[in-house]
Simulated scan of single mutants.
Amino acid sequence: MIKAILFDISGVLYIDRQPIAGAVELIKTLRQSSIPMRFVTNTSRSTSQSVFAELTRMGFDIKPEEVFTAPVAIKSLCQAKGYRPFCLIHPDLMPEFSDLDQSRPNAVIVTDAAELFNYQQLNQAFSLLMDGAVLLGIGRNRYFKSAGQLQLDAGPFIQALEYAADVKAQIIGKPDASFFQAAVSSLNVRPDEVLMIGDDVASDVVGAINAGLQACLVRTGKFLPQDEKEAKSANALIADSVVEAVNQAFDLEY
Rank of each mutant, 00 (worst) to 15 (best):
L122A: 06
L213R: 09
Q120Y: 02
G173Y: 06
F180N: 09
G207L: 00
A231T: 01
F126V: 08
A169V: 06
D101P: 05
D204I: 03
S233P: 02
A208V: 00
K168L: 07
M130D: 04
A208P: 02
D153Q: 13
Q120W: 01
V189L: 11
G148F: 02
L217D: 10
V110I: 14
S203G: 10
G139R: 08
N141A: 14
Q149C: 05
Q151K: 15
Q159I: 05
P175S: 12
I172W: 06
K174M: 11
L152K: 03
Q124Y: 12
D200R: 12
S233R: 09
S103P: 04
K222H: 06
F157H: 12
S146D: 09
I109L: 06
L150Q: 08
F157Y: 15
G207D: 01
N141M: 11
F157L: 12
L152M: 12
Q124D: 05
Q159K: 15
F179S: 14
A154V: 01
L187K: 09
D204C: 07
D176A: 15
D199S: 12
L195F: 01
L136F: 05
A215M: 03
V108T: 10
A234M: 03
E115C: 02
Q120A: 13
F126D: 04
F117A: 05
E115Y: 06
L122I: 02
I209Y: 01
P225I: 07
R140E: 10
D227G: 08
S178G: 11
M196S: 11
T111M: 14
V189Q: 06
E230G: 01
A177C: 11
Q214R: 15
A169Q: 12
L161I: 12
C216N: 03
S178N: 13
S127E: 13
L128I: 06
I197L: 07
D199F: 15
G132Y: 09
E193R: 10
E193S: 13
Y119N: 12
N210T: 12
I158F: 02
R142I: 04
K145P: 03
D199Q: 13
P175K: 12
E115N: 09
D204P: 11
M196F: 01
S186Q: 14
E228Y: 00
P105Q: 04
D131A: 13
G212Y: 00
T220F: 08
A169I: 09
R142S: 07
I158Q: 02
N188R: 08
R140W: 03
P105R: 04
M130E: 11
G212R: 07
L116P: 00
L122F: 02
G221Y: 11
E230D: 07
A211E: 05
G155T: 14
Q121M: 05
D192N: 14
L213N: 07
G155V: 13
Q121K: 04
N235E: 10
A234V: 05
Q159R: 15
G137P: 08
E162K: 09
A154L: 03
E228H: 00
Y163W: 12
A125R: 14
L187V: 02
L136P: 00
D99L: 06
D153E: 13
F117E: 01
A125T: 06
K222M: 06
I209E: 00
S98D: 15
F180R: 15
R140K: 11
R104G: 02
V201I: 09
A208C: 03
L161M: 07
Y119L: 13
Q159W: 05
R219S: 10
G137N: 04
V167S: 13
A125W: 02
L135D: 05
D112I: 02
F144W: 15
D112C: 07
N106R: 07
L217W: 04
P156W: 09
